[in-house]
Design a protein around this nucleic acid. Structure first.
Lengths: 231, 231, 231, 231
DNA sequence: AATGAATGAGGATTCATTCAT
DNA sequence: AATGAATGAATCCTCATTCAT
C-alpha cells in the first residue's frame, strides 16, 4: 500500500485508541464476527490497492487488529483472498437467484430480463469492490484465482441458460447454443457494469438495463427493416 | 516466478555453458533484434505468470541473457512492460485497421462485420499472450497500466462507432448512442475472444463470428416472431 | 563491508545458533534498548568501514539480529545513519555545555579554555567512532549529511563566540570577528582531536590542551620579543 | 551520479558529435594526453558527486570517451582515484614549494608567512575540486585512501616545520614541538580554505591570510596586555 | 586503441509468515 | 486469542569489470 505517511511513529495509535472494546473473541459467535470483520476489511483494501499491493498489515489496520491475528483466522494471504472471493461469489449467486425468483412470476420475458439486468447493475453499483476484485485481481493472480471469475461467469450463465432453453422450447428465443447465448448476455451485463464503474455515465441502471435488454432481444437492425425485408 | 525446483543446486547447464551465453549484438540491427528478443521473452513470461510474479531474472533466462543485460536495453521492469504493451497495442490497432480496409469494399454490412470479428478472433487466437496481458496485467497494475486496456477498447470502439453512425443515418441501424452500441459490440468480441482462450471451444472463428454478428444484428428473438407480432 | 573471508562457506556459528538469535524485545523498555543496540552496532560498523561500505546486513550481524529486524526499528539505512548522527550531535553538545558550565566558575580564562579543550579532546578520545563518522561520512554523503558536521562545528563555534565577545568587551581579547576567531579555535581543537586519532601521539590530553591554549592565546612569537619590540 | 535525464536514448549523442577529431591516441604523447584528459574529467566528476556516487561511465562521458576506454588507461576505478590524488598531491606540493622559494628572499617572516598562506588559499580557491576530494572522498574511502590527506597534511607541515625550526633557533618562534606547531598552522590554513569553499565569505584571500598570520603569531590576547602584564 | 554489450556481485528494501509472550 | 518482534526469501536495480569486435 505504502501511503498515509501521517501515522509515522507506530505505537502511538494503539495508545490513543481504547475505542475498541471487544478485545478478545471468546464465543464462537464473536470469533465468527471477527472473521467477517477481517473479510470486510480485506475486501475494501484489496479492492482499493489490488492483491499484490495490499499487505496483511494493511488489512489488519483496517480491521483494527494486529496483523498477527489475521493469521489466527486465516492460513495465509492467499487463502484469505480465496475465501473472500468464494464468499462474494456466493453472495452474488444468492442475490441473482433471488432476483430471478422475484421476477419469475413476471411472465413477460422482457420485463423479467430487464429486472434481472437492472438488479445486477445495481448490485455491482453498491458493490464496486467486488467488481474490482473480479476484474482486476481475480484475473491477475494466475490459474488458481481466475477460477473465481470463471465461477461467477458460469454461475450467471447457468441461470440464464436455463431460461434460454425454456424459451427456446417455446419458440420465443432463437435456436443456438444456450451456453453461448447466455455467455453473450453475461458478457454484456458484466462489461457494462464495469464500464459504469470506470466511466462517469449518468444513465440510470434502469435505462441501461432496458438498452441492454433491447439489444439482446432485437439486435441493432431496426425491426421494421426486418419486417419489410421478410414481408 | 518461483517454480521448477528440479534444476535446484548444481545446474548441469552451467557446466556446459561458457561464460558468455550469447553473441554480442554489435550492429544497430543486432541491438534492435536483441531488444525484440527481450520483448518477446517478456511477453511470454508476463503472459504466463503475470507482471507481479515475473522477475527480470525470469525474462532474462528465457531471453538467454543475464538479467544485467535486460537493464542494458530497458530502464526498468515497468518501462519494459509499458513498452511491450504499447507495442502490442499498436500492432493490434494496425491489424484491425487493415482488416477494416480490406473489407471496406465489401458493401454488405453483415459480411463486413463478420469478417472484422473473425479477424479479431483470429488475431487474438494467434496472440493469446496479448489477451492475457490485456485482461490480466493491464487491469491489475493500477492506473498507469490500465490505460493500455482502455486504449485498445476505445480504439476498437471508435472504429465501430463510426460505422454505426454511418448506418444509423442510412436507417440500417437502430437509433441510440453509437458509443454504447459500439461498446456492446466490443465487449462481445473481446469477451468471446477471451472465452476461447480459457475454454476448449471447438467452434471455428468463422462460425463464432457469424454467431456474434447475428446476435448483434438481430438479437435473440426470432425474426418471424417479430414479423408476426408486428404483422 | 566485504572483508573477512575466513569464515567463508559453512559458518560454524550458524550451527550453534538456534533459529531465533535473540530474545524478543517485548516491553517498551526492551524495545528502546534494542534500538540502542542497533545504533551502537551501526556506530561501530559505520565508523570502521564508512557509510557506503557498510551494509544493513553488517550492522545486523554486529547487533546480533537479522537484517530484517533492523527495518523493524529503522525505516532505512539513511534514516538509521541520520538518527545516529543526530544522537551523537546532541550528546556532544550536552557534554561540551556541561564542561563549560563546570568551568564557568573558573574565572581564570586560560584555565577555563584549557579545561574545555581538554574535555573535548578526552570526549573524542573515548568516542573515536564519532570522530570518524564526523570527519569521514558526514562530509562524504552530500548535502543532507554534511549538516551534521556543520551543526557540530557551529555549535562549538557559537559557544566559543559568546566567550570571545565577552572578553573582547573587557579588552582581554583582540578585536576582530568573533566568528572567525571562534572558527579558528574550533578548527584547532577538532583537527588536533582528529590527529590524535590518526597518529600515535603520546601526549596527554591535558598537555595538548595547554599547548593549544597557549598557541591560541599568545601565538608563536615569544612574548619577550613582543615586549622588547614594543618596549 | 544519476542526473541529466534529457539525454535519454543513448546512441544519439554519438551520432551528433563528430566534434572530437583525435579518435585514436597512437603516439606516446597522444596517449599521455588522453590519460590526462581522463584524470581531469575524473577530478571534476569526483569532486562534484563524490567517489561513491560517481561511475566510470560518468567520467568517460565528461572525458568524451567510452567507459571501456577508461579501462585501457587505468586498471580500476580505485586506481584511477589513487592516481588522481597522487597527482594532485604532487601538484600542490610543487606549488607550495614554489611559493616558499619565491618568498624565501623575503626576510621578513610575517610577510613570508602571509604570502604563503595567501598563496595556499588562492590555490585552493582556484582548485576547489581538490578541496572537495581531499576533505570528502579522501577521508571517506577508508585507510588506503586517507593516506592522501595525510600526505598533503604532512607535506605541508614539513615545509612549515623546517621554517619553524629555523626561526626557533633564531629565537623568533616559541619553543615547542615544531611538528605540532606546523600542524596547527596547517590546520588553520586548510580549515579556513575549506570554510571559504563552503560559506560565502566576502573576505579577500589576502585579508584572511593576514588574519590567520596574526593569529598564529600573536594569538588572541592583545599584545599590550602582555606588555603590561610583563612590564 | 576504442567501443559498448554482457555479466553478475552486491545491497536496499518489502513483507508473508512464524512464534514467544 | 492477540500481539508484534524476528526472520529471511525474494527481487529490483546499479555499476565495476571483462572482453569480443
Amino acid at each position: 500500500m505504502k501511503l498515509d505517511q501521517e501515522s509515522s511513529n507506530n505505537d502511538k495509535e494503539l495508545e490513543e485508541i481504547p475505542t475498541r472494546l471487544i478485545r478478545r473473541a471468546n464465543s464462537k459467535d464473536e470469533k465468527e464476527r471477527r472473521r467477517q470483520e477481517i473479510l470486510i476489511a480485506a475486501k475494501k483494501v484489496f479492492a482499493e490497492y489490488g492483491y499484490n499491493s495490499t499487505s496483511i498489515s494493511d488489512i489488519a489496520k483496517v480491521a483494527n487488529l494486529s496483523y498477527g491475528s489475521v493469521y489466527w483466522y486465516f492460513d495465509s494471504k492467499e487463502s484469505l483472498f480465496q475465501e473472500l472471493m468464494t464468499f462474494e461469489e456466493d453472495e452474488l449467486r444468492v442475490y441473482i437467484q433471488n432476483q430471478i425468483n422475484l421476477n419469475s412470476k413476471n411472465f413477460d420475458p422482457p420485463s423479467a430480463l430487464i429486472a434481472a439486468i437492472e438488479a445486477t447493475l445495481i448490485f455491482f453499483e453498491s458493490n464496486k469492490e467486488l467488481l474490482r476484485l473480479l476484474f482486476r485481481d481475480s484475473l491477475a493472480l494466475g490459474d488458481r484465482f481466475e477460477a473465481h471469475l470463471y465461477n461467477i461467469y458460469s454461475g450467471f450463465s447457468k441461470l440464464i441458460e436455463t431460461n434460454i432453453s425454456y424459451y427456446q422450447k417455446k419458440g420465443n428465443v432463437i435456436q443456438g447454443s444456450p451456453k453461448l447465448i447466455a455467455f453473450a448476455i453475461t458478457s454484456l451485463i458484466t462489461q457494462f457494469a464495469h464500464r459504469r464503474f470506470l466511466t462517469d455515465d449518468n444513465m440510470t441502471a434502469h435505462d441501461l438495463a432496458v438498452f441492454i435488454t433491447e439489444l439482446i432481444m432485437f439486435g441493432i437492425i431496426p425491426r421494421q427493416n426486418i419486417i419489410q425485408e421478410k414481408g
